[in-house]
Structures are given as C-alpha cells and as structure tokens.
Design a protein around this nucleic acid. Structure first.
Length: 474
RNA sequence: GGCGGCAUAGCCAAGUGGUAAGGCAGUGGAUUGCAAAUCCACCAUCCCCGGUUCAAAUCCGGGUGCCGCCUCCA
C-alpha cells in the first residue's frame, strides 16, 4: 500500500507524493516560547518527529524546519496589541528576551529527552524580521494588505479561498465574530501583519514606523519560505492552529508568491488530561519534569503518546502512563527475546522457522504506518511478533531478521524501545553465578539475598528451565 | 449563534458493510524452593432509538454525552 496521509485541506486521505522526488520539505509549527512546553504541546511536536522519522524510513530526505516564535504572538487583536512574550515578561518583571531565550533552551532539552530527532533548522521569528517585512511590503504592493496608521492588515476579502482550510467562510466569521470589531479594519476577520506600539520592548523600525513588530501569522510564512522555498510538501501543527493561524498563513503566502503554499496540512488532536482540557487551575498542566518527578522516563511518555492515533482524542492520566510503561517494557522484552533467539536460545528448531511470521509483522507494521501514521496498529504488529517469540516459533534466522527490523525500522520511528544489547559488569555477573551456586546447594536464603540485592541495583532475575535470564528494571 | 471531531470490555486502543486486532489490569489453574517470566482457561456484540441491507461497530436519520475551533493555546 502506498504512503497516504490525511490532508486537512481536502478532508481526505491522499497518497503522498513529494514535489521533488525523494525529498520532503516539511514545516512544523513550533512553540511560542513564553512558558514551559507541556505534554500536550509535545503531542504535536512528537507527531512531527514521528512523521519525519517515517518519511526517512520510507526513503525520503526530510528537510524539517520547526520555528521558534519568540516575538509577535499577539494576545489578541485589541488596541493594545500586546504579545504573549511581553505580557509574560511583565508578569514576571523580567526582560522579554531573557524569557524567550530561557524557554527556548528548555524546549530543546525537553525535545531531546523525548527522543525527538533535531530538525535541520529551528528558525527564530526575531531573526527573520527582514524576511517578514519583504512579504508584508509585497502584499501591500499587490493590494492584498493595507496600512492604517503604523499598522498593516491583510484584507481577507481579497483572497477568495480564505476559509477553505478550516471550513469557515469570511461572511460567517463576520457574523459570529467574537473579535472586537476595530473601526480601522475593513473586515472584522482582517488580521494584523505588522503592529506598532511605542511601549513595546521587542520592536523594529520599518517603512511603517519606528516601533513596529510582526503579527502572529507572518513569521511562519516568512520562515517557511526562507528555509524551504515558496512551495512545501507538508505543514503541521495542532488542531487549534487550523484557524486562524494556518488559514492566514495560506492567504499571506499564496497571495505573495502566487502559488499554492503547502500540499499537505496535517493537524494533531489535542491531548486531554483527566478526560478534559488541561488547565492551570486544575493543576494538570504537566511538563517533562513532572513526568520524571513521578518516577517515569520521558520514553514512557513518548510511548504513551504513540499508543494513540494522532487524529484521535487521547487522554492522559497517571495510571494510563503506568500502563504505557508496562506495555513498552514488553517491547524491550521483545528485543531481548529476539536477540537470544538469534543466538539459538529459545529459538525454534529450524533456523528458518517463523520467517513468514516475521515477514507478516513487518508488512503489517509498514502498512499501518503508511496508512496515515497509524502507530497503535503498528505497535500491535510488534506485540504479535512478541507472541511468536514467546511461543518459540522463530528460528535463529527469523529472529535475526525480526531484530534487524525492530532496530532499523520499528524503533527508528517509535524511538523508545530499548533495542541495544545490554551488558553487565563482572561484579554482577559473578553475583548471578554465586546465586546459581547457592541454589544448587539449596541455600535459598543466600540465593534470595543475592536476588534482592541485584533487584536493588535494578537487575531482575528470572529462572527458566533453560537457565537464568536477567533484565534491567526501568 | 456558526463550524468540526469523538463515543468499542475495568483501563488504553485498532477496526468504515460480512458475525469484534493488540496492550494493560483482573480471576481460576499449571509451572517454580519462593518469586519473576511463561502456559491454559475466563473477561465486549461496539452510547441510545429508528432506518437501509441477505448482512452494520462500520451507511442514513434522530437523540444523548464528551472534546475542540470561531479569542491565546499543540
């Protein structure tokens, strides 16, 4: 089956074809760095990482760009035109630049902890003001935008397709608008490309005035264009970005270049916590540190998020995370079992036994991922393979193939299974041997003492008819 | 008020016309010096009502509930 993704723009699953053979240009809407990213944010960024990884597994070179919005994300369209970072800075009585710098650093660390591969570029909005102004000037020159005082607005009526992505129409937006209508705007849905405010700290000079700063949407259009070109293959974001952010990006970019902007628009559903929206007042806005503080590893969260399809609502609770951890450890176990079977331990009699089972699992995994990144289905395929391994139906050759697949494909995309061969230091090796001696002597008091001691060091022992197996407790 | 999504076992979650994947947890039994792991068995008719069809979790209509966007949010 061919690689296919659900495209918000068309409302259908479509076969994926890149503009340039073997190359994918992908832009991911990244964070606005005014506070610490929470696990809900990471659902979207992890999706972008998964998509990138699967495209790479499918043989594409992926030019992945994830923006860092460090200026210009307006709190609202009201007269004061405050942006989120400045507002946060005011609250904390700190310098806005310092705020965005600090959160950017933390964001990078969190991404790495979650096992996300670094994008090729993380462009910052504040470093692309000239590119934004170039587009704004162009839009004004072409008549798609107009200046009022020192502000510039995009005129949505000039772009008939405005609303196509979100299903809104310009008229319905006007009718049901909760936006405070500003007199100076020609249409309530017109949005700011450039704002001016003398009190703003993060501001730039332009032909429109001395104290300007960009509107929220323009930075993505400008940075995508700068780093990927006028046309890109995929643009991702959270479902909340569909309107107005991505709708507005399309309008700006397409009016400026005269070409279609992105072929595929892909959006992640919100993560729910405790069955509802996470909120500060409920105290369930969790960060990666909260995950650690509860004794979990970031990879457990990664797996927890991958257990749900990105376009389905997904709920997060601590018991669900614990459940995910248990399930993930079974995949760690799959890797260990395949490795042992590869060496003949617990393998089927004939080396090529089970080749078909392994091939089936591989096919199912690939088919699931090709089908709009269906990670839950892909994970199920691995679990089935584990059943075969447990039943000792895989010969050494089949096990070797399965292990190779797990290492080079399945975990290349899931990115959270422990597939590496683990070794023990001599000290522990000899402790295990000593315990075996004690057991032979039926000195169970001593053997249990050693087992407890090893457990305290994170080593779990299992006595099978064929000998002792150890694994690391996570 | 406008637009959209979702509703599958105790929990998580696949499945879009042919008699319900997978995981976690649980119960009973086996195995074990004990434990762990493993094995066997048990554990859903798919929110409700109506319709279409030989056949529906899957299509249509009507409810109910939850979530999201339209204002900052991934």
């Amino acid at each position: 089956m061919a690689l296919a993704f659900y495209n918000t723009l068309t409302g259908k699953k479509e076969t994926f074809e890149s503009l340039e053979p073997r190359v994918v240009r992908m832009y991911n809407c990244g964070p606005t760095v005014y506070n610490r990213a929470h696990i809900g944010n990471f659902r979207a960024y992890l999706f972008a990482d998964t998509l990138r990884r699967w495209l790479e597994c499918s043989g594409f070179e992926v030019r992945q760009v994830m923006n860092i919005t460090d200026v210009g994300h307006l709190l609202d369209d009201a007269d004061d035109g405050e942006d989120k970072i400045e507002a946060q800075a005011k609250r904390e009585k700190r310098d806005p630049w310092e705020i965005s710098r600090g959160h950017t650093e933390t964001f990078m660390k969190d991404l790495a902890a979650l096992g996300c591969e670094p994008a090729f570029v993380y462009p910052k909005a504040s470093e692309h003001i000239p590119e934004m102004l170039e587009m704004i000037d162009g839009l004004v020159a072409k008549g798609f935008a107009y200046q009022v005082g020192e502000d510039v607005y995009f005129e949505v009526k000039k772009f008939p397709r405005y609303g196509r992505l979100s299903g809104n129409t310009v008229d319905s937006l006007a009718a049901g608008s909760r936006i405070e209508v500003r007199e100076e705007k020609r249409h309530p849905a017109d949005f700011a490309l450039w704002k001016s405010d003398a009190h703003h700290i993060m501001k730039w000079e332009s032909r429109y005035g001395q104290h300007g700063f960009p509107g929220w949407h323009i930075e993505c259009s400008a940075m995508a264009r700068k780093h990927l070109g006028d046309k890109i293959d995929i643009h991702t974001g959270g479902e909340d970005n569909i309107f107005p952010h991505h709708e507005s990006e399309i309008a700006q970019s397409e009016c400026f270049t005269g070409q279609p902007f992105a072929t595929f628009w892909m959006h992640t559903k919100f993560l729910q916590v405790d069955g509802g929206k996470m909120s500060k007042s409920l105290g369930n806005v969790y960060s990666i540190d909260d995950i650690r503080a509860k004794g979990f590893e970031p990879r457990h969260l990664r797996f927890c998020l991958l257990r749900g399809h990105y376009r389905q609502p997904l709920n997060f609770t601590w018991p669900i995370l614990a459940e995910s951890k248990a399930a993930l450890e079974n995949l760690d176990d799959l890797a260990a079992r395949l490795r042992r079977a590869q060496g003949g331990q617990g393998a089927a009699a004939s080396a090529d036994d089970g080749l078909e089972e392994v091939a089936d699992a591989m096919d199912e995994f690939r088919a699931a991922m090709d089908d709009d990144l269906n990670t839950p289905r892909a994970i199920a395929a691995l679990m089935k393979l584990r059943t075969h391994a447990i039943e000792e139906r895989l010969g050494s050759m089949a096990a070797a193939q399965g292990l190779k697949f797990l290492e080079n494909t399945a975990n290349k995309v899931l990115g959270c299974i422990r597939v590496a061969e683990e070794t023990l230091d001599d000290e522990i090796e000899s402790a295990i041997a000593a315990r075996q001696d004690a057991r032979k002597r039926r000195d169970f008091k001593e053997s249990d003492r050693i087992r407890d001691e090893l457990l305290a060091q994170g080593i779990v022992l299992e006595d099978t008819p064929k000998g002792v197996i150890w694994k690391r407790k996570s």
